[in-house]
Design a protein around this nucleic acid. Sequence first.
RNA 1: GGCCCCAUCGUCUAGUCUGGUCUAGGACAACAGAUUUUCGAUCUGUGAACUGGGGUUCAAAUCCCCAUGGGGUCACCA
Length: 450
Amino acid sequence: MNQTTLSSGVRVRFAPSPTGYLHIGGARTALFNWLFARHNNGIFLLRIEDTDQQRSTEEATHAILDSMKWLGLDWDEGPYFQSQRLPIYKRYAEQLVNQGNAFYDTDAEGRTAIRFKMQQNVIVIDDLVHGAITFDSAVIEDFVILKADGFPSYNFACVVDDADMKITHVIRGDDHISNTPKQIALYNALGFESPEYAHIPMILGEDGSRLSKRHGATSVTEYRDKGYLPQALVNFLALLGWSPGNDQEILSIREMIDKFSLKRVNKTSAQFDNTKLDWMCGQYVMNTPIEQLTAAGKLFFEKSDIDTKNISADWLFRLIELYHERFKNFQELVDQTRFFFAHTIEYDPAATDKFLKKEGIPEMLKEVYSAISSLNSFDRQGLEGCLRDLTAKLGIGFSKIAQPIRVAITGRSASAGIFETMEILGRETTLKRLENTIKNLSGITNTVGL
RNA sequence: GGCCCCAUCGUCUAGUCUGGUCUAGGACAACAGAUUUUCGAUCUGUGAACUGGGGUUCAAAUCCCCAUGGGGUCACCA
């Protein structure tokens, strides 16, 4: 028993043009098609619409395919390339000319193309998410179907291919609504049966305008490079324009497939909210086993010019375990933990001013130094006991000592727990950083308070 | 501008098809509190919306019309 006999007959496609990376909107369109296909046990195919010889690049094709794979959107057929199907379009274009539905037309620049002759009538799209949409085709002018360079135009290639590839449902952004009457006219002229349409709402930038570069990250690649988890992006994208119908926010791929329905797709465009994506990715990080995060995290440390050659797998595991609930993407993890790896750490001026450049601090850090340097076991329990004893002896609150130590060994005023941080940093580095801080401070504190 | 689409908290949305159970629910964010060695995480709580106007109806967030606002599209780009 093969896929075909099991399938519902549903065939959908994602048809990007290779003129750039896969952007968020395209990814969401691909996802809805994929979800629809998987839900219906149908076929999801990929078609590269590379009919613009000027703007199409092979790099873009690779970037798109890579992004699809990274997101886990696997396809059953293709990728097909329109540039390799030129004879097919030519044949149909000539057929339309012969039928009297199209004509040769030479423009002012001397280029001869084939233009489709629009009929005067009313065209109705029976859209699966919008319902009936009516157009008066009198407002649509005759349009080019085969360009002077022999390549088909978008609307024509799209129709010929969707018919040829037996696409049953066209799921695409609603910026294509105004193309649809042209395509329906083409189906009619060619004698093909029109597929069903589902025009899904667009994704807008955070200010409500069309998503563009100035909104920051707009490509799937950028999110991958920042270390977002693909499942989190997929989950977030799925909830932009679709909802399972209940209050559930975190859904597994399986649940998305099971629950996906075009009936539950919105008509309203959605603004991309990076903050919520961050939250969601944080949820995924917390729910991902540390072993997995360690493997992926290692790659990010290396990419960030952090030498991991002398780092043991066990040490990395403990580091990520410590930060498990503190990072939302790997870029954040790297930023937060850089001081663990650095030979010389950078000190945040605000933090040193507030917690180190004060009277009595060097003396206190000296006490800390001598207390912990003689510890038998330099681990979190040992350190905690030791330092709690010290604060008791000195008669001060624990917070008085924790922040100066934190700044001294991490360079910043916020980090994971101070005992755990010292433990993972190790005795040698911890003591060295304390020592350096004490030295650097000696000259300074004398002047403070004068 | 022509044509087309859309309209619930700041944001994503549930509720709209099949009016009444909606003094409109959830999530993110915000704010307050709890916890705490910092930040975060976590827990508790608070504020926050049916664009406006007309209808229809015993009853409208839900149906109809108009206005307004937002978006899309008008290429030998896709």
